[in-house]
Each structure stands twice: as C-alpha cells, then as structure tokens.
C-alpha cells in the first residue's frame, strides 16, 4: 500500500499515456503505408489495453481507501495524551468496539437530585431557582412539546426514563434522546454527528448529547460570530 502511494507522488507526473501520445505523433509525421498498419495496431492497443490502466490510476486513491479494511489500532499511536475530563464507558458499541462518553452527572450542579427530592419539607430563600422555575422548556413544537416528566422519572428523581418506563442514567442520556432522534443517534454512534473529545487517536471518547445541547432547549441560540473575515483579494 505505502509503496503504491509513493509511486503516485514521486514519479514525474506524466505517466504512460503521455509517452504514448508523443510516440503517436512521431509516427504520424512519417505517415507512409506500412507505418499506417503499425499505427492501426497501436490504436487498437490504446483502445483495448489502456482504458484499464487509465481507470486504475485515476481512481486509485479512493479505491485504496475503500479497500483498506484492516483494523487500525488507535491506541498504538504514540504520544497521545489521555482525555482529562470525566468519562464513562458507553453502553453501546460501534462496529463491535467500545467507546467512552463524557460524564453528565458531574456537570449538573446539584446532583444528586434526591438531596432535595425527599419526603422532608425544604425551606429555602431562593425558591424560584430551587424549584426549577428558571428552566424554560423549548423542546418539541406545538402538541409535541415536552414536559418535565416526559424525560425525568416521576418517582426516582436521580434517573431519567424512556417511553417504556425503563430507568436511564444521566450519564447515558443518549439512550433517551435516541428514541426520537434515532437518525442523529445513528450518526452519533458512527461519528457524523457530534465529535470526539480532544484526540482523533487513542481511546475513542465522544461528546454526550447534553455536552453540547441544552436538553431543555436543544437548538443553539443565535449569536454573533466569534470573528470576521477580511476581503478575499487584498
């Protein structure tokens, strides 16, 4: 494989085809009848034999990629620094391979929820905030709009639940999101949605759904871009 790539790059970039073309012109200049037969044979060779070669050289780069099915060991890459953020092993796999996702629980300020959600009465000053009155749910439209207990477990506040009533851990919320957003989840598993954390190599660690999206208002808000671009032609 590597030998092939090397030849693509370093040979002077006028391959067989061009050499043959110059040959062809020399023959035309001395166009006498016996030579014409040679030309004819040459044309036949060009038409029959060359297309294979041309095809091979034109699409070799992508073919080479598609033909590579040998597993690549990402952990064998030296100098990779491990991800420092807290992660958990995902409950799903991609192509039979385990991966990790960013933990969500340690991002929630007042986890565990059962600290407040007990049978005991709670007296507080910042009632509005502590009763979650600051949360605006903007998830789902019209009749499809979600309410708290569509995702939060109605009895055990330390967990979420899906539509079948199964408890879902906060760290594995992708199992909950994926029941509606199954296309996004499929892409997320493969890597077309979301992204890896810090490294392309090493152990696969990817962002959780709620690492980027606010689950109560998942669409990104409008804002000014981080910078601007100068005119193209200066």
């Amino acid at each position: 494989m590597s030998r092939h790539r090397y030849t693509i790059r370093t040979t002077q970039d006028f391959p067989e085809k061009m050499k043959r073309r110059s040959e062809f012109m020399i023959m035309n200049r001395t166009a006498i009848m016996p030579r014409l037969l040679l030309v004819y044979v040459f044309v036949i060779i060009t038409v029959v034999a060359l297309p294979n070669q041309v095809h091979a050289s034109e699409s070799s780069f992508l073919d080479e990629i598609k033909d590579t099915q040998e597993k690549f060991d990402n952990r064998a890459v030296e100098k990779v620094r491990p991800v420092t953020r807290k992660t958990v092993l995902a409950k799903e796999r991609y192509n039979g391979r385990h991966f990790r996702v960013l933990s969500r629980k340690n991002e929630i300020n007042r986890f565990a929820c059962s600290n407040c959600h007990t049978d005991k009465p709670v007296t507080v000053n910042e009632g509005a905030e502590l009763t979650h009155a600051n949360i605006n749910i903007n998830h789902g439209k019209g009749e499809e709009a979600l309410t708290c207990i569509d995702c939060h477990h109605s009895d055990d506040r330390n967990y979420l639940w899906d539509k079948k009533g199964e408890k879902i851990d906060y760290d594995h919320s992708y199992e909950l999101c994926g029941q509606c957003h199954f296309r996004q989840k499929r892409d997320w598993l493969g890597g077309a949605h979301g992204k890896r954390v810090a490294n392309w190599a090493g152990e696969r660690v990817i962002y959780n759904c709620a690492s980027c999206h606010d689950p109560h208002s998942p669409r990104f808000e409008k804002r000014y871009p981080a910078t601007y671009s100068p005119p193209l032609d200066r």
């Binding site: 590579t68 597993k71 690549f72 192509n95 493969g190 890597g191 077309a192 992204k195 962002y207 980027c212």
Partner: peptide, 23 residues
Amino acid sequence: PTGSRVFGNLLDPDSEIRFVLKH
C-alpha cells in the same frame, strides 16, 4: 461548537471520517 467538522484516519475502517464517506 456544532460538530460540523469531522477529522480522522482514512485508513482506519472504524474512524469517523470513514463512516461519513460510507453513509
């Protein structure tokens, strides 16, 4: 911030970039 950018090893059949090219 949106995850629009995918980067990886084209010679790794399990990489994110290969998923994009395939699907």
